[in-house]
Each structure stands twice: as C-alpha cells, then as structure tokens.
Computed example of a mutant assay.
Amino acid sequence: MVESAIVLDRVRGALLGGAVGDALGAPIEFMDLARIRTRFGAGGTSGFVSNRALPREVTDDTQMTLFTAEGLLRWRPGTDPAPALRHAYVRWLRTQRRREPPPDDDSWLAGQQFLYAVRAPGTACLRGLDQQLRGPRTPHRLGKPGPLNPDSKGCGAVMRSAPFGLAGFGPDMAFAFAGRCAQLTHGHPTGYLAAGALAALLDRVLNGTELTVAVRDTIAQLTEVTGAQETVAALRHAVECDAAGAASPERVEAVGAGWVAEECLAIGVYCALYAARTGDIRGALLLSVNHSGDSDSTGSVAGNLLGVTHGLSALPTEWVTAVEGHATILRVADDLVANFFLRDRTALGGRYPFED
C-alpha cells in the first residue's frame, strides 16, 4: 500500500500535470511542426504561449477531466457509474452554452467561472452529449461498437479519463469504468478502450508499479480484450520508439499525431517513458506538445502520466501555479483522495451532493 501522502502528491500531480500539458499545447494545437519551428526556433516552444500574462488557459480537455472527477465523486459505489458520469458531462455541456449555471444546479464545480470558456470542444463529445440529452443511451459490452458515434475513435474520451485511474479501483475496474463511460460519446472500440487503458495505466502507477512495468502490464491486459488491437499496436510502437534512441519531435510524429485515441495515448506514454529514462520532466512536457498533431490533448495525457509517476512536487512549479483553475484543480484532486483513499467525506465540505 502506497502511503497516503504519496498518493495525494501523485493524484495532485496527475490532474495538475494534465492541465499544464493542456495549457502548453493549446496555443499550438493547429500548427504543424514547421510553423512551430519558424515561430519559436528549432526546439519549438519552450514554455507557455499566450497573449495574456496569467493564467495560462486550459481547454475542454481539463474541463471534462474535472467533470469526470465530479461524476465519480457523486457516484454511489456498487452502482453503474454511467448515469453519474452522464449527468456530469451534461453539466459540462451546459458550460459551453451558458454563461453561468442554472439557478437549480447543485454542482459546486459548475460554479467555477473559468470552466465556461469555449475552446474548440470536440465534435464527438458535443454530438454524443446532445444525443444523451434526447434520451440516455446505455453503453454496450466492451469490445463492440457503442451506441453513440460508433465510428468515432477521436481522442475526446481518452483525454478526459484520468480520474478513473486515480480512485484506487484497481486496474481491471478502472479500465472497465473508463471504457464504459467513454461510450457515452465515443462508440468505436479503439476510442473507448484507449480511455480504459489510460485509466488502468494510471491506477498501476499510482499504486506503486514502475512505469515501464505498468505499460507492459497494461498492454498484456489489453491483449485479452476484443477490439483492442489498434491500442495494443500503438502502445507497442511507443515503447519501440522510446527504445530506438534520442527523443525528438520527429520521433513523436512517428508515434502518431494524437487526433485519434490510440495515438494520443501512445504519445503520452512515449513522453512519460522518456522522462522515466532521463529524469527530464520539463523536457517531456515540451516534447508532448511540440509536434504537428493534437498538442493540447497529447500534452494533457502526457501530463497525467508524468504527474502520477513523479508527483506534483516534481513538476515545474512556475508552470503549475500559473495554470488556469489551479486552486480548483487542486481541490478536486484532494477530494478524490479524501473520498476514495481516506474514506473521509468531511474533507469535501458539502461540495458534492451524493445524489444524482
């Protein structure tokens, strides 16, 4: 059993690391590598890029991750998590269409004004949740196309799924819960199984498994799941690219672009493996965003993995404290630990009514 202080540091690191990666990648998400280098030099961006001084803005990746956490905090153990997560994601959807929560909304999180920013949310997430509003769709058994967006394997499910791996469920349950709830918007097996794989990987690392072993064990877990071939291949390719030599944006692009789920996960894993091998956490965060693909989502997933592996205390302090919503993210991380590891809901201060 990992000590509670270490768990707290790692859960804080996972959520804030994801937010840092998101904020680093957001301004260059739609730039190709050549343009990034033309603007910032051969090494690409070396830090936050923004027209504003502070805070450094996050996107829907961090927004939806926080609502995932809220859904888990409202979920009643022993029940299907999908309804609680559906309600949480619908609350996020409202933030994209309103300026403030409706008067009858009991969500503490929905009262945080920075979450109302609209920053290129994913089409599959919006379309899937609109369909959920018209009538809840129950996720199918893992390994088959889900009921909504059955052809969508974009990264919009994997980039929000870290909290499933930060609740101490164990890798099998973390995988199943994340995959099931990813089907609320993404029905392609790769789209939701990659989300499950991220959760299982985070769960293993949080509970003390060394990263390379956790990656190996997660790949082995996936090989037993119908429909996981693309995710398995992408993760194996990430491991091979890490073993092949010095890290570079070109090698990141050999792993993928990150627009689809398995490539987003694989890039995050590749960058986390680089940091485990070199100790260069700052460099790994920059590596995860300086490429031609979906820089904010790959930065988010890499940040989740770097944070859970090394803890908040190892992340660059000046980046962590500058990120938008820092205090809220920290509070949500602490609530996850209080609820799932300390079994002491008094720490939550009444912020999450346990009815949904």
Rank of each mutant, 00 (worst) to 15 (best):
Y116N: 05
R134M: 13
T209A: 08
R141S: 14
P150T: 07
A197T: 09
A162E: 00
L166S: 12
V118F: 12
A178T: 05
R160E: 01
F177E: 10
A120C: 06
F164L: 12
L211C: 01
A195W: 06
L126C: 15
L184I: 05
D203A: 11
G208D: 05
M173D: 13
A124Q: 13
V215E: 00
R119Q: 08
L126H: 10
R141C: 06
L193E: 05
L133Y: 07
F175E: 02
H188Q: 15
G179E: 07
A199S: 03
Q132S: 05
R180A: 08
G187L: 13
L148A: 12
T123P: 03
A176G: 07
T185I: 13
Q113K: 15
D151G: 15
R127V: 09
P163F: 05
G179Y: 05
K153N: 11
C155Y: 02
D151V: 13
F175S: 08
R141Y: 03
M173Y: 03
G111S: 10
G208E: 01
A174P: 04
F164Y: 13
P147N: 06
A162Y: 01
A157V: 08
L198A: 10
Q183W: 00
A199L: 08
R204W: 01
G122H: 08
L148Y: 07
N207C: 06
K153S: 11
D172T: 12
R127F: 07
R216D: 04
L129W: 10
L201P: 00
T185H: 14
A162P: 00
A157L: 02
G122S: 13
G154M: 07
R204A: 00
L202Q: 03
D172V: 10
G135K: 15
L211H: 03
D217T: 03
L211Y: 01
G187W: 09
V213E: 06
Q132A: 02
A214F: 00
R137L: 15
F164T: 03
A117H: 10
A162N: 06
G168H: 10
N149I: 07
T190P: 01
F114Y: 14
C125L: 07
G196K: 07
H140S: 12
R134F: 12
G179D: 05
G146D: 07
L115P: 02
T212W: 06
L201Y: 00
Q113S: 14
G179A: 13
L201K: 06
G156S: 09
K153E: 05
G208K: 12
Y192K: 10
T185R: 09
A200P: 08
Q112H: 14
G154C: 13
V215D: 00
G179H: 11
L142G: 01
P163A: 12
F164I: 06
G128R: 07
C181V: 14
G156W: 07
P171S: 15
G179R: 13
K144E: 09
